[in-house]
């Protein structure tokens, strides 16, 4: 009896959690297909909001800018973050602790503080525009790459790198054939994390963009101030779907799995 009750309570708790987490998103997705401007009446299924969405030049531009920004900032952050992760790995205890602290600051810092700080900095040195947004995104993406990569570097099998050098491989060849393959998983998850974070960001973009530069999130914000239109539901659904897709990629990427197995084989 008691067990049954406990079961019921835990099930109820779970449903409540899921409800508050996902019901709003679900409602939004449903409304994006609603053939009515009302937020309470179901007027039948339609794709017209998506149609108007993609026929809007401004929104299209913002969409491609968002994607381009996410990919480019992730690639740059990946390059800088990888070098940084190797550097931090080589540090001794004290420097290591300090650098990890420094890395964590942008993660824990309120976005609005980072955003305003970067804005002040950019105003002084370069015009606000797509360039400043890119630099800002690279800045907050680097820590994610470092955090994804550092544990992989730490558990890396260095002996096989040395073995390859011993058998005649140059340092560069040894790095690409022995070290890089061990880091594929970390590099991929760092990259996708950076892409997601970049697409997700509103606050920092809002403060560091110039006039006329819009990502989807700043675009939605601007539109919504003028009044909530169903196109925005459609747009938000698209963003949600994109991020969801990337998350699935990160978790089920085949080489990610393979790298995992390979490492287990080594250890």
């Amino acid at each position: 009896m008691k067990k049954k009750l406990l079961d019921l309570v835990s099930r109820f708790y779970f449903i409540i959690i899921m409800f508050f987490l996902y019901a709003p998103i679900l409602v939004m997705i449903v409304l994006s297909f609603n053939n009515s401007r009302s937020r309470v009446v179901w007027g039948g299924f339609t794709l017209q909001w998506y149609k108007t969405l993609f026929s809007n030049r401004q929104i299209r531009e913002a969409f491609f800018f968002t994607i381009g920004l996410a990919l480019l900032s992730a690639v740059i952050a990946l390059l800088i973050g990888t070098a940084a992760a190797f550097g931090i790995h080589a540090m001794r205890r004290r420097g290591y602790a300090i650098m990890m602290g420094v890395t964590n600051i942008p993660l824990l810092n309120a976005d609005i503080v980072t955003g305003i700080a970067l804005m002040l900095w950019f105003i002084r040195f370069l015009p606000l525009g797509s360039g400043s947004v890119l630099i800002a995104h690279v800045t907050f993406n680097i820590p994610y790459v470092i955090l994804a990569l550092l544990p992989k570097i730490e558990q890396m099998n260095m002996a096989i790198y040395e073995a390859s050098r011993d058998l005649g491989a140059t340092a560069v060849r040894g790095f690409f054939t022995m070290i890089l393959p061990q880091l594929t998983g970390g590099l991929l998850s760092g990259f996708f994390m950076a892409v997601t974070m970049s697409m997700d960001d509103f606050m920092i973009t809002y403060f560091t963009r110039g006039a006329g530069v819009n990502t989807l999130s700043t675009m939605i914000y601007g539109e919504i101030r003028k009044g909530i239109k169903p196109e925005m539901y459609a747009l938000s659904t698209v963003i949600f779907a994109a991020v969801f897709l990337i998350l699935i990629c990160v978790n089920f990427w085949p080489s990610n799995r393979k790298a995992e197995k390979r490492r287990e084989g080594i250890i």
Binding site: E162, S164, D166, L167, A169
Partner: peptide, 30 residues
């Protein structure tokens, strides 16, 4: 001289075989 330029080879403590290569490719590596 870097290790790849020395006519010296090493048998490592934990073998350090290349896990992504089969026995033939391991031995043929050098």
């Amino acid at each position: 001289l870097p290790p790849n330029k020395r006519p010296i080879n090493t048998v490592f403590q934990r073998y350090a075989l290349f896990p992504h290569l089969n026995i033939y490719d391991n031995i043929a590596f050098g």
